[in-house]
Design a protein around this nucleic acid. Structure first.
Length: 520
RNA sequence: GGCCCGUUCGUCUAGUUGGCCUAGGACGCAAGGUUUUCAUCCUUGAAAUCAGGGGUUCGAAUCCCCUACGGGCUACCA
């Protein structure tokens, strides 16, 4: 683990479905670490469990990172000098290392059927035996190349009997894992079991072997992964040792888990559905069940906001800055500053991050979505202004008036619909509180005067104040009744801003309409 | 059950070489202000006896031990 080594890290998901947001954070931390050290970031697909393969998952993963602007330097979809990067295409490579382990006595063949294994576990659990696993204390009672006569093993192999290759853990060893986040973690090899490294049925290794072989061959310098892997880290250290690669073993860092917002435990897909927030970067439809899951992208989150939010789940720069661009994150990120305890996902904070990033967007960037939403929502009959009757400049002005209220871009319609549609009904409470009998008279008088102006916000404001003063009207009632006439409810930007956007004709018409509909 | 990891405001966390911590920031919450609407925004505030208990020390959130609680792992899954 010399520090001179070129930094090369990998993200190695299994294509078993959509990528969980926790996985995204793991990838992000890998990426930040790599880029800070001017290193490389690889994508490797760990599809050694053919039974769990889900079509489309790999494409989903690649698309998710494209959306998030987290590019890979090497790997599936990109290529590179250490390919193939899909483990199912690396069978030939793994075979030779299985053989090496077998030849050096660090592994052995096992022929136990699933039923026999179940029976063993049951037996051991019932007995007072301290060990409940396939290990040094039990392997001689099982059906394997250690317990069977050599000739019988050979015969079984020649007969094509399905088998697995298990690692032969030497008991009584102290194994130390140097974790960059947690420090030294030491365990005794007695607690490790003889894990399956290879299964003949599909001619593939299990995760443990494939992982070590690939990391070695792909010259991975640091393994940054979730905490759920910490218990198997000693096994991996042992594997590096048994394969003779101890000197080039990568550094390890085990990230704290992402926890569900309520209660405890790992954040899962179910929690998202239950609490109403996405657990996946992109929406996903399960190809088998047809079940749909929401995604951050489709929910209106900005990728920069998701990245920023995720970076702050389990990490903190130690300063008071919270809004970070990707480049700033790369500069500031420190693996040593990653916290050790799990982080609960906080939806409110996620919203806040999105709100911050939305404010940075240009007003013009909302014009398209506004036209689209206005078109979809339809424009009602009567007094209206169709979306295409507004110029881009007018729509941009409209956006400028309401942007600060938005957390998600799609909310823009809720804040602008009244520009397009005259009210069809008027909020009863406001009518009762503000609309006095003389209001139609007052507003018609105002209409007559306003018609003569250039209808700029400042002129309208001045005119209104002047009329209120001269006639002794109740300012609050007049202003709020005007709003009622324009919007139909007690919401929206300043009324004179609304008037200038919808224009003189529409404004006067809406006010006249309210005088008729609400009456005296 | 066994093994491993963890434990500072409701939440994310600062605090890392013990003293400047009467524990700081952010989200959320409350109040006030701005906005003659609503929201935004601004200000202020409540909010952690640093899981509990023992040590070590002149002095501990920071070091050690024990306990409790939480989590992870314990598959021919990753």
């Amino acid at each position: 683990m010399n520090t001179e080594r070129k930094v090369r890290v990998r993200f190695a998901p299994s294509p078993t479905g959509p990528l969980h947001i926790g996985g995204v954070r793991t990838a992000l931390f890998n990426y930040l670490f790599a880029k800070q050290h001017h290193g490389e970031f690889l994508l490797r697909i760990e599809d050694t469990d053919s039974s769990r393969f889900v079509p489309g998952a790999e494409e989903y993963i690649i698309e998710a990172f494209q959306w998030l602007h987290i590019p890979f330097d090497e790997g599936v979809g990109i290529g590179g000098p250490h390919g193939p990067y899909r483990q199912s295409e690396r069978r030939d490579i793994y075979r030779q290392y299985v053989k090496q382990l077998l030849d050096s006595g660090h592994a052995y063949y096992a022929f136990d059927t699933p039923e026999e294994l179940d029976a063993m576990r049951k037996r051991l659990e019932e007995s007072k035996s301290s060990s409940h696993q396939y290990d040094a204390t039990t392997r001689m009672q099982m059906k394997n190349s250690l317990s069977l006569p050599e000739a019988e093993t050979k015969a079984l192999l020649e007969a094509g009997t399905p088998y697995v290759v298990r690692i032969k853990i030497d008991p009584g060893q102290t194994i130390t894992v140097h974790d960059m986040i947690r420090g030294e973690v030491t365990v005794n090899s007695d607690i490790l079991d003889d894990k399956v490294l290879y299964k003949s049925a599909d001619d593939l290794p299990t995760y443990h072997l494939a992982n070590i072989v690939d990391d070695h061959l792909m010259e991975i310098s640091h393994v940054i992964r979730g905490e759920e892997w910490l218990p198997s880290a000693p096994l991996h250290v042992l594997l590096y040792e048994y394969l003779g690669w101890k000197d080039s073993m990568p550094g390890f860092a085990h990230l704290p888990l992402l926890l569900k917002p309520d209660g405890n435990g790992k954040l899962s897909k179910r929690d998202g559905d239950r609490l109403g927030f996405p657990v996946f970067p992109l929406a996903w439809t399960d190809p088998k069940t047809g079940e749909k899951s929401s995604g951050y992208r489709e929910s209106g989150y900005y990728p920069e906001a998701v990245v920023n939010m995720l970076a702050f789940l389990g990490w903190n720069p130690g300063t008071e800055q919270e809004i970070f661009s990707m480049d700033e994150l790369i500069q500031a990120f420190q693996l040593e500053k990653v916290s050790k305890s799990g982080a609960k996902f906080n939806l409110e904070k996620a919203h806040w991050f999105n709100h911050q990033y939305l404010q940075k967007q240009s007003d013009a960037s909302f014009i398209e979505i506004l036209r689209k939403r206005a078109g979809e929502a339809g424009v009602r009959g009567g007094l209206t202004r169709k979306a295409d009757s507004f110029s881009d400049a007018e729509l941009e002005k409209m956006v400028g008036l309401v942007k600060e209220r938005l957390t998600f871009p799609q909310e823009i319609w809720d804040q602008t619909y009244f520009f397009f549609n005259a009210p069809e009904s008027y909020d009863e409470k406001v009518v009762k509180k503000r609309w006095t009998e003389d209001m139609p008279m007052i507003l018609r008088q105002w209409n007559a005067e306003a018609e003569k102006t250039d209808f700029s916000a400042s002129v309208l404001e001045e005119l209104t104040q002047k009329m209120i003063g001269e006639n002794g009207w109740n300012a609050g009632k007049v202003f709020n009744s005007m709003r009622l006439a324009l919007v139909g409810a007690s919401l929206g930007p300043h009324i004179f801003d609304i008037m200038t956007v919808i224009g003189k004709e529409e404004t006067l018409a809406r006010i006249e309409q309210a005088c008729q509909k609400v009456g005296a």
